[in-house]
């Protein structure tokens, strides 16, 4: 069940990301970017990173995308106003991106990324309580230490 959800969300995310890049109207691009970000939030939820799920929706879908939408409405861009690049340079861009993808996949295909350790696994690390402890405990201690050094 979980793996089917993962692959479905992955497919949706990549589809919406492609639509962001290739849709003609900038307003549609922003709307597809919002959908992409909601799909990524679903990925965070699957990974049990609930704090990042909430922050992603609030900060990205709630604040950044509204800012984008506001600027696009403000500038009043029309879809025919954007001059297109020549077909050759578009093709070159897509080929360059595709070759980067091929190189990265070939380099990372055999890499042993490791996996979870069932003995020490803690599924609660993405929750607000634990992240707050790490954020205000460990990281703030280091900041205070840096300040006392200077």
């Amino acid at each position: 069940m979980a793996d089917k959800t993962f692959y479905f969300l992955t497919f949706l995310t990549l589809l919406f990301a492609l639509l962001v890049v290739f849709s003609k109207n900038p307003v549609y691009s922003v709307l597809y970017l919002i959908l992409t970000i909601f799909c990524l939030s679903g990925h965070y939820l699957l990974l049990n990173a609930q704090f990042l799920f909430a922050v992603n929706i609030i900060v990205y879908a709630g604040a950044i995308m509204v800012l984008f939408l506001f600027v696009i409405m403000f500038l009043n861009l029309r879809e025919d106003a954007e001059p297109q690049k020549s077909t050759a340079s578009k093709l070159a861009a897509v080929v360059a991106g595709g070759m980067l993808l091929v190189v990265m996949v070939a380099a990372l295909r055999r890499v042993d990324a490791g996996s979870y350790n069932p003995a020490t696994y803690n599924s609660q690390i993405g929750l607000v309580e634990n992240l707050g402890k790490v954020f205000l405990g460990t990281f703030c201690c280091r900041l205070n230490w840096l300040r006392s050094c200077s």
Binding site: L14, A17, L18, V20, V21, F22, P26, S29, F68, V71, I72, L75, L77, E82, P83, Q84, K85, K90, A93, V94, A96, G97, G98, L100, L101, M104
Partner: peptide
């Protein structure tokens, strides 16, 4: 890579 292709293909600064 989709992001990189978007930077290379489009001319609209917002996109």
């Amino acid at each position: 890579v989709i992001g990189i292709v978007g930077v290379l293909v489009r001319r609209n600064a917002l996109i």
